[in-house]
């Protein structure tokens, strides 16, 4: 992995990335030549109306989908040539997800839910439990560890879901409309949780949203339209200082 990391330290490098569905005249161009670099430790919002290609880009970033052409490297590693099994090995460990709905497994406790990606990673029971409790504490929901999802509020459940994503120590946290199912107040709490998580651990976060309010919580907003990057802007100076202070942080695996 380190051998290929000569050009830059960008965590994510995307070059001329295209994704089409179908063939001939019915071809749908979901992504038309995206070029994008995301640095280690950035907190980015990926914005755009539905049909803009943001979900497709998120699926490609999360190894849920493959690009038709172009390149995608994560931490210097080419992601376009991975086998299904290699993809699965990265998912949940180096790339973690927080989804729109409350995607906790209903018949597992908070703690078991948070341990799940680490048990798929074949980590030992004690390591799993330690990491899970740490993550729950980090999100301020460790007192909920023995509760089932049905015994939590929406905001609590989403914070448990973020704890689950963060527990294995991923390089990249992808969040797809993470506040979509929440009211504004709980949504704000969840967004603040993302921000403090970002400050404390320096994990790279990409939030996909159509909501400008949500996007305002990121450092950088990349707007997509019709499968292309429309704009790429920095939000404020207040958080940027953070990752420049610690340029080499991250890369925990």
């Amino acid at each position: 992995m380190a051998i290929e990391r000569v050009e830059t330290t960008a965590l994510i490098q995307i070059k001329d990335l295209s994704r089409t569905y179908g063939e001939g005249p019915a071809t749908v161009h979901a992504l038309r030549g995206i070029n994008l670099n995301i640095q280690q430790g950035e907190m980015v919002a990926l914005m755009g109306p539905s049909g803009s290609g943001k979900s497709t880009l998120m699926n490609v970033l999360g190894l849920f989908d493959r690009a038709t052409s172009g390149s995608y490297t994560l931490g210097g590693q080419d992601m376009t040539r991975l086998t299904g099994r290699q993809q699965a090995n990265l998912r949940g460990r180096r790339i973690a997800f927080v989804f729109q709905g409350i995607h906790l497994l209903p018949r597992l406790t908070a703690l078991s839910n948070v341990e799940l990606p680490m048990s798929y990673a074949r980590m030992s029971a004690s390591q799993r439990k330690d990491a899970a409790l740490n993550a729950l504490r980090l999100l301020g929901v460790d007192q909920l560890k023995d509760r089932y999802p049905s015994q939590m509020s929406g905001g609590q459940a989403q914070r448990v879901a973020i704890a689950r994503a963060i527990a294995p120590g991923p390089d990249l946290l992808l969040a797809d409309e993470p506040t979509g199912a929440l009211d504004r107040k709980s949504g704000t709490l969840v967004l603040e949780a993302f921000q403090s998580l970002h400050q404390e651990t320096g994990v790279t976060i990409v939030i996909v949203t159509h909501d400008p309010y949500v996007a305002q919580h990121a450092e950088r907003i990349i707007a997509l339209e019709d499968g292309q990057v429309l704009s790429d802007t920095r939000v404020e100076e207040r958080l940027i200082a953070h990752h420049e202070d610690e340029p080499s942080k991250g890369e925990q695996s």
Binding site: R85, A88, F99, L105
Partner: peptide, 16 residues
């Protein structure tokens, strides 16, 4: 479907 999707997103292999 949903459960399977979540498990796969959390790193479950096809074999799992």
């Amino acid at each position: 479907f949903r459960e399977i999707g979540i498990r796969k997103a959390l790193g479950a292999r096809d074999g799992d």
